[in-house]
């Protein structure tokens, strides 16, 4: 990256380090920080959407839909989350390939599960064998986003369900006595008022989501954990101009500090947000404000 890096053997310690940390391989590590941020950016709204759906279903008047909603909320809580991550990635992949297989190759007669293999016709493969590498990477990443969204959607559904129940009954009853239909009550009263109650829970969820991002590594995405292991391992002078011993412990110390700083900053932002929102509740009516101020 820098011009003085052309000859690494005769550099002083500091400039050696600055050269070492800017090799193209290290750039991959820095890009993967971007991957983590992108995952957070994509997962947070998707999970919120799933959570909203789950919460609405759990409140439904129809028994079957209510059961599905409640099941979605509660199953993720009794089972380790990492089992879900490992499960959904394969399950979604196989579901998509199976669906495409049914559409594209209706004349295929052999079974899809042959012993220990999962066989679909070539054009149903996802991504296609002929696709370039980056499509494979993006597909893997999107699968991960979707998996995260399903699991965190269940947590968000739990928070939003609680928040919907926390909206004062008097507000709903007033709306009904004004002659609003169920749909109007939901859209004009319930949803606008629930966010203040949901914010502490959602803030908590955001912190949990940050701390779950290293699990991307288990889903086969080349994330910061992957690169930290890769770059930290012992390098001999034969393969690189920057030989070093086993530095993985320093790389993971770096990651530890990165996550500590990230959660700390998020905590500060959420606190400020809560304060601002509590001030803003002046306009939402005294009842709500007292609940928040407690």
């Amino acid at each position: 990256m820098f011009e003085f890096c052309a000859n690494p053997e005769n550099l002083s310690e500091f400039s050696w380090l600055s050269c070492y940390l800017t090799t193209p391989k290290h750039m991959n590590l820095f890009y993967s920080v971007g991957t983590v941020l992108l995952l957070l950016l994509l997962t947070a709204p998707t999970a919120l959407l799933f959570g909203f759906g789950g919460a609405v279903m759990a409140r439904s008047k129809i028994l079957l839909i209510r059961l599905i909603g409640n099941g979605y909320i509660s199953i993720v809580r009794g089972v380790p989350d990492i089992a879900f991550f490992l499960f959904f990635v394969i399950a979604i992949d196989q579901f998509l390939e199976w669906t495409r297989h049914k559409i594209f190759c209706p004349e295929w007669s052999e079974p899809i599960r042959q012993g220990n293999d999962f066989v679909v016709c070539t054009i149903a493969k996802l991504p296609l064998n002929s696709s370039p590498q980056w499509i494979h990477e993006i597909y893997g990443f999107l699968l991960a986003v979707f998996t995260f969204a399903i699991v965190f959607g269940a947590f968000a559904a739990n928070v939003l369900y609680g928040a919907m129940r926390a909206v004062p009954k008097a507000q709903i009853e007033t709306a009904v006595s004004f002659g609003m239909t169920d749909r109007q009550v939901f859209r004009r009263i319930l949803v606008p008022q629930m966010w203040v109650f949901a914010l502490p829970g959602l803030g908590n969820l955001w912190m949990i989501l940050i701390k779950a991002t290293p699990l991307l590594f288990l889903l086969g995405v080349e994330d910061i954990v992957y690169w930290a292991r890769e770059l930290g391992g012992t390098k001999t002078a034969k393969f690189t101009s920057y030989p070093h011993g086993d530095w993985r412990v320093w790389y993971f110390l770096g990651l530890l500090v990165f996550y500590l700083a990230f959660t700390r900053v998020s905590e500060a932002v959420i606190d400020t947000l809560m304060k601002t929102l509590s001030h803003g509740t002046d306009t939402l009516g005294g009842n709500l404000q007292r609940q928040v101020g407690r």
Partner: peptide, 10 residues
């Protein structure tokens, strides 16, 4: 404040 996963690796 840090993920358990990273704590294990470290």
């Amino acid at each position: 404040g840090s993920p358990l996963f990273i704590q294990f690796f470290f």
